[in-house]
Nucleic acid binder design. Structure first.
Lengths: 129, 129
DNA sequence: TATGCACCCTGTAGCAACTACGGGGTCAAG
DNA sequence: CTTGACCCCGTAGTTGCTACAGGGTGCATA
């Protein structure tokens, strides 16, 4: 599988795949006669894992760790579970922060009475003190 | 006011203030005899605006635009209101994304039965297909 | 007076996770 | 045989800071 097909299949883009190779998230694949990258099923699966974990918000470092943990099938699931829980907690904090922030924005937006900038509540809300 | 006092007052740090100057968010302030930056009230107010808008999640580009709009007190408030609303919508989308993501994480965490990695639902959930 | 310490200066490089470019090679179709 | 879609490499840009390194300044204390 060439890099373009792979990228399309993973809904990512070619540069990202090459980037992952450069930083060691993916092993360098075999090359065709024309020096094109040629991906084996194993590497395709690994990229799939990486992309899915990324869309779940794991960092590349998290994913390195998850992959290391996942590579030993006999190991306990505990560490992986713990990572997922930690990550969920971080997401919960992010949601809480954004919700508070939306409330503040709602407040300034509601206060805006479509006047002149000189009396704009939004501008005032952002001003000093 | 020296840069250190300013930074403390704004709960930001010195490097950030200098960074804002470098990228043109803040004008270069006057200098003391010792070549120390010396901030006038106007610039302090501007930094306050920037920091408050940043904590509300506006990007520096957004803030540049807000500052430009806010600088003409006679102008209508409309454009500023529209920016705030656009921004709130973006935050709402972010909250929705994170909430969906938390649901997925909850699912895999609930499915995890503390077994071996070979059968870990989290690993499976991230795997190909 | 010396000296220590907190503060200030500049300039550059690093972070995460890509994205975009420039300048070229390869391959299949028409 | 040329056009277009693909591939290669290397480097630099993005956002919003943060962290040095290697120096200067200013005030209090011994």
């Amino acid at each position: 599988m060439k890099i373009g097909e792979l990228a399309r299949a993973m809904a990512t883009n070619v540069e990202t795949v090459r980037y992952y190779e450069r930083i060691g998230m993916l092993a360098a694949p075999a090359r065709t006669h024309a020096n094109y990258r040629s991906y084996a099923p194993e590497q395709i699966a690994r990229l799939s894992f990486i992309r899915r974990a990324r869309t779940l918000g794991f960092t590349l470092d998290d994913i390195r760790e998850l992959l290391a943990l996942a590579s030993d099938a006999d190991q306990s699931c505990e560490a992986i579970d713990a990572m997922a829980v930690r990550h969920r907690d971080a997401i919960n904090r992010k949601i809480a922060d954004l919700t508070a922030l939306r409330q503040q924005l709602d407040d300034v937006i509601d206060a805006c009475s479509q006047g002149r900038v000189g009396h704009c509540r939004i501008v005032e809300a952002l001003g000093p003190r």
